[in-house]
């Protein structure tokens, strides 16, 4: 495989995240119990999404500076894989919340109504929809250069929208989601040292997996471009 050291690193880190993530000790927290291990999977999806979207916007800016169409292909693929990671983060969050926030058999837990009003969920849904609009906008413009330019500008707007919708607003409103008063999982005081040993490698592993899929898509797109320009 071409330049494969980081792919091997990705596989090793993910194997560690799955095996170590399930078997290594975690702090005992009421209500969360063993589900705290979801930190290695659910939270990593959002971290990977954020890093992939950042990569995408960097390529969009590079496109606007150079007008080189290959940067546009890269921006698109990284945004696509970031969106998949975001959807997986949303889905896994729904499963996790269903068993730790609301429980119809336990009146001490919140009702569904308060979950539907969760600012973090609404913000995340907004961010995902803004990125869906990016793909709809892209594919509705047929002229290649115009599509690249319009979608690069929109990508910068979409990236800017991430900050109010998933970082700022959820922290201003009351929420059941943890980490509202600081940087969840990044703060050295609120995450257990034993969990950090798995969490950070897991973030890198899942991000590299996303980057791997994105590079495959980019290479296919470049091949397709070559085929068209030769034909």
């Amino acid at each position: 495989m071409r330049k494969s050291w980081w792919k091997i690193l990705c596989v090793a880190l993910l194997a560690y995240a799955v095996i170590g993530g399930i078997l290594l000790p975690v702090p005992e927290i009421p209500q969360l119990q063993e589900t705290i291990r979801n930190l290695y999977y659910h939270v990593c999806m959002w971290f990977a999404m954020m890093i992939l979207f950042t990569t995408s916007v960097v390529y969009s800016i590079k496109y606007l500076r150079t007008l080189d169409i290959s940067y546009d292909l890269r921006a698109r693929s990284f945004a696509a894989v970031g969106l998949v990671m975001g959807l997986l983060g949303y889905g896994t969050g729904a499963i996790w919340a269903a068993y730790t926030w609301a429980d119809p058999n336990n009146p001490a837990y919140a009702s569904f109504g308060s979950i539907a009003r969760e600012p973090k969920l609404i913000g995340a849904a907004m961010a995902i929809l803004v990125y869906f609009a990016y793909f709809i906008l892209r594919d509705s413009v047929t002229d290649m250069d115009r599509r690249a330019r319009v979608s690069a500008v929109y990508n910068i707007f979409a990236y800017a929208m991430l900050f109010p919708s998933i970082w700022i607003v959820p922290r201003l409103l009351p929420s059941l989601h943890p980490g509202q008063e600081g940087n969840p999982a990044l703060n050295f005081n609120d995450i257990d040292a034993r969990m950090r040993m798995v969490f950070y490698p897991a973030v890198i592993g899942w991000t590299l997996l996303g980057a791997w899929i994105a590079t495959l898509k980019i290479r296919l797109d470049i091949l397709r471009e070559k085929k068209w320009s030769n034909a």
């Binding site: 495989m1 071409r2 792919k7 791997w212 899929i213 495959l216 290479r219 296919l220 091949l223």
Partner: peptide
């Protein structure tokens, strides 16, 4: 599966 896709794309390249 990813490795096999990677190899197939490399062969196409």
């Amino acid at each position: 599966y990813l490795v096999s896709l990677d190899r197939r794309i490399r062969r196409m390249e």
